[in-house]
């Protein structure tokens, strides 16, 4: 059916926005997490404030700020860039929090043992703590990716031609015949993509809990 094709044409954009924002978040979350765990109180509080602020503002507002609001000289974000950067910043904030949680649940004994062995701060962090924290955080990261996939639909509100945009356009262009089909198609694709991801997440979570 026409509707199915029309909506599926938006799928690459949905995936692109999700993947790009996720990548930015994965990387950007690291410095933020380091800031959250900093030894210096001022740094910690400042980063905490920034992270809370980013997470306290709805994604759609961020996208509008970047798309409509930012203009440096003649430079403006196009819709896609605004969506990716906006969702990327938000992802960084959420992932920083998830990373921090991964470290927080590490037994204190790990750091002590590493120090007792004579490992320096950086080695302790990179070789002992980080790998374990990463494993703990993995299920939450997967869950977040699922949420990000759905949030990518917000990009449609600033004109990114993802599945929801395609569905909306199709319905507006065919008001008599379209019905709800385009949206059901989009919904089905979202569910279809998230099912394998959710299964992976649940398996990771179970495996983690068993080895705890």
């Amino acid at each position: 059916m026409e509707a199915v094709v029309a909506v599926l044409l938006g799928l690459p954009m949905t995936l692109l926005v999700t993947a790009a924002a996720f990548a930015i978040g994965l990387v950007g979350g690291i410095p933020l997490m380091l800031g959250l765990r900093s030894r210096h109180r001022v740094v910690r509080l400042a980063v905490r404030f920034v992270v809370d602020l980013i997470r306290g503002i709805p994604p759609i507002v961020w996208l509008f700020v970047l798309f409509f609001g930012v203009s440096i000289g003649a430079l403006r974000f196009n819709a896609l860039a605004a969506a990716i950067v906006g969702l990327g910043i938000i992802s960084a904030a959420y992932l920083a929090e998830i990373y921090r949680g991964g470290f927080a649940t590490l037994p204190a004994g790990q750091t002590e043992a590493a120090r007792a062995l004579g490992l320096g701060r950086r080695s302790t962090f990179v070789r002992v703590l980080a790998p374990q924290a990463a494993r703990t955080a993995l299920p939450s990261v997967t869950t977040f990716l699922l949420a990000l996939l759905k949030d990518s639909s917000i990009a449609s509100t600033i004109g990114v031609t993802d599945m929801v945009f395609a569905a909306n356009t199709f319905v507006r262009q065919n008001p008599m015949t379209a019905g709800l089909t385009p949206f059901f198609v989009a919904a089905a694709v979202y569910v279809a993509i998230s099912i394998p991801l959710a299964i992976v997440a649940r398996r990771l979570d179970a495996r983690m809990r068993r080895s705890a």
Partner: peptide, 22 residues
Amino acid sequence: VEVGRGIPALVVLYIVYYGLPA
């Protein structure tokens, strides 16, 4: 529950908006 969690809230809104009048 899985459908409710799997579909973006935005899509749910559109479905309700376009669908209920129908």
